[in-house]
């Protein structure tokens, strides 16, 4: 990815991350218009972002259950 391309992806990703999940698709419809590659890139990163959150929740739950089982 080029520096300019990442700058654009980063900006959209950041804005989309501030939105509730159901608001992201309409936002990207508007922001990416017909740029399919740009949209795919932002969506792929949003998906990875969900992985970050899920792992953190899973880790927290594991800690809790470990503490509870003591």
């Amino acid at each position: 990815m080029s520096i300019q391309a990442w700058e654009q992806v980063k900006e959209l990703l950041h804005q989309a991350m501030q939105l509730a999940p159901e608001q992201r698709a309409p936002f990207l419809d508007k922001a990416c218009s017909s740029d399919v590659a740009l949209r795919a890139e932002v969506e792929s990163l949003l998906l990875a972002g969900e992985g970050v959150v899920t792992t953190r929740v899973a880790n927290a739950n594991r800690c809790r259950s470990q503490i509870a089982s003591r």
Binding site: L13, L45, G49
Partner: peptide, 13 residues
């Protein structure tokens, strides 16, 4: 904050 939030997602992927 913005750079950090997006960087960690990028690294994760």
């Amino acid at each position: 904050d913005r750079d950090w939030a997006t960087a960690r997602v990028w690294l994760h992927r």
